[in-house]
Amino acid sequence: MEKSDIKIIEEEKSFKQKLQPWGYLLPTIVILTIFMFIPFFQTIIRSLFFTDNFGKMQNFIGFGNYIELLTSSSFWNSVWVSFRFVLIVVLVGVVLGFVSALLTQKAFPGLAFFSTSYATPMAIASVGMALIFQVMLNPSVGIINKILGAHGNMLADPGKALIIVAILTAWLNSGMNYLYFSSGLASISDSQYEAASIDGANGFQQFMYITVPALRPTTFFVIVTNIINAFQSFGQINILTKGGPGEATNVIVFDIYREAFMNYRYGFASAESVILFLIILALTILMFYIRSKGGKVQ
């Protein structure tokens, strides 16, 4: 019935009506073409050129930038740093979000206050949080050194700097993770727990055999989303460490920024952008795959 109705409308189409959809889509088409599609292809083309200090393409060098990139130890350092960074962000972020979700699984007075609080990191800017961390870690007046009885600047320690920016990023992600986990928990019906407790299962057993398996699709989804987010972290690193000390926190996105806007090597940085795009693309495809599979599980 719906189809025949559409047909009637279609038959009455005039030239003006044929143009109509494009009118509605005009802003979308124009903006995405100018600010997404063209820059995207320009980035690919620019990555094949040697560029001057203003980003003008000088001469075609084929895969020259890619070869230089893939043979530079600095790039592989960035890949390794990004990998460790992402690992800490995901681990800490998932734990923070998951614990918050478990604590608010059952109703109690004040629940609304706690659950809103646990989600607030979603609304907090990476800049604001980075500036707070900067003061907390200040060698002379910061609270962290006072609590730990430590001296010296932790952000100047190559081993600690990466962990600190990763924990900060995990905190920023924890609000979103909390929401995903608590909606996952909410979808487990109470009757499952009741049946288990009648059968004599204790709290730990219920957690291991009901909660954990039910949250598996959610957890996969959260992990992949967190990985993608973590790869794109920039503000906190630019403010707290600027990729340093040395190259200890020089993740791929920061290295792109450094090569393009500090060293003015636009072509080289474009090649690195293309590689970042390929990494994110692979992860996004993985996410959609898990998502479609996760939907079928239940």
Partner: peptide, 30 residues
């Protein structure tokens, strides 16, 4: 209903896969 509806929607959705940081150099130069 118009020609290319599905294709155009797919194209719009596909831009979600492009991280902003990967096109920011070209956007800035532009």
């Amino acid at each position: 209903k118009f020609k290319g509806n599905k294709f155009l929607y797919g194209l719009v959705i596909s831009t979600m896969m492009v991280p902003g940081e990967a096109v920011i150099i070209s956007q800035f130069l532009m």
